[in-house]
């Protein structure tokens, strides 16, 4: 079974529209949407969910305000600036007077006499990296450290075959781990259903989700655009695929916006050992197809559609050459 990954370095170059078109053209593949923190492929492929599982990501520390003695050890140990002190009002028995926040909003708990204030610490869940060190060393055992449900992943059916995709919860961590799950599950589906290829829609950038997408791929297609930013980002992404020793192809989308830069990009790609996969015209049909919830090759037979078909034939040829 072959794994073909579409990535871009720079965002917004048309990666997902092109990957979805490949799925439509292929007839028989498993689709994996690995752009887990801004997944868009489902818009074009309208998957029907057959199987759903929760994704358990990293841990999160939470401090029990009633048990916290305010010693501050956790704040000193935390390398991620996720722990800060705050003053709370307590009643006579030392229990937190609920409804009273930090200093500044004094006099919140009217009715109950405010005897004294207590210093406690709290965790900023957005800054917490999930290392668990504070919980391990808290002398009062006031810190709970629990695995978090960070998202969901799905096995679905589309009009072109099976699709594995995921949704990371708002602001959750560990997208690289979720990408690995999506890819592995897609491979399993391909095995079970005896499908010869997995097409992966990767994420922008060069960080953890991209590394997870590229790992183990047979062929990578980088979709770029003819802008100075595109040139810069392509260089970084090609350095990455070279390091992973994956056969890499490059296509310039909307090449007619700036043909001079397109030529520079193609030269850069060749210098870096990438194979040129061809150019794609700027074509408003790409966005029109999106609105119709279709891939551009289904929606139109215009320039972009023709160009993508040509690239797909070339991709198939390159994959066979890999045998």
């Amino acid at each position: 079974m072959k794994e073909f990954v579409v990535i871009s370095g720079k965002g917004g170059t048309g990666k997902t529209s092109i990957a979805a078109s490949f799925v439509a053209l292929s007839g028989h593949v498993v689709m994996a949407d690995c752009d887990v923190d801004a997944a868009d492929l489902h818009i074009l492929l309208s998957p029907k969910i057959k199987h759903k599982e929760t994704f358990i990501g990293g841990g999160l520390a939470t401090i029990d305000p009633d048990l916290c003695t305010g010693c501050g050890d956790c704040e000193k140990l935390c390398r991620f600036d996720a722990i800060s002190p705050m003053k709370v009002a307590v009643d006579g028995k030392g229990a937190i007077d609920s409804g009273v926040g930090t200093g500044g909003s004094a006099g919140g708990g009217e009715g109950i006499a405010r005897k004294e204030e207590k210093l406690i610490y709290f965790v900023d869940k957005f800054a917490c990296d999930g290392c668990g060190v504070c919980a391990y060393f808290c002398p009062a055992n006031a810190i709970a450290f629990e695995e978090q449900e960070n998202g969901e992943w799905y096995i679905s059916e589309t009009r072109f075959g099976p699709m594995v995709h995921a949704k990371l919860h708002a602001g959750a961590e560990n997208s690289g781990k979720l990408v690995t799950i999506v890819k592995n599950e897609a491979r399993k589906v391909a095995d079970v259903e005896d499908i010869g290829m997995v097409i992966v829609d990767g994420s922008p950038g060069i960080g953890c989700p991209v590394i997870s997408s590229v790992t183990g791929a047979d062929l990578v297609l980088v979709v770029t655009e003819p802008t100075k930013s595109g040139v810069h980002d392509l260089e970084r992404v090609l350095e990455l695929t070279r390091f992973f020793n994956v056969k890499t192809m490059v296509t310039v989308n909307r090449f007619d916006i700036n043909e001079e830069i397109t030529e520079r990009i193609e030269e850069k790609a060749r210098e870096n050992g990438a194979v040129l996969a061809g150019r794609i015209h700027y074509d408003p049909a790409v966005v029109e197809a999106q609105i119709e919830k279709k891939t551009v090759v289904e929606y139109s037979d215009g320039t972009a559609s023709q160009d993508i078909k040509g690239i797909w034939d070339f991709v198939k040829y390159q994959m066979e050459e890999e045998e």
């Binding site: 957005f126 800054a127 990371l168 959750a172």
Partner: peptide, 14 residues
């Protein structure tokens, strides 16, 4: 900030 909605974006915007 970087694109996306996960941890690097949160850290940038905080």
């Amino acid at each position: 900030a970087p694109p996306g909605t996960s941890c690097p974006v949160i850290e940038s915007v905080r």
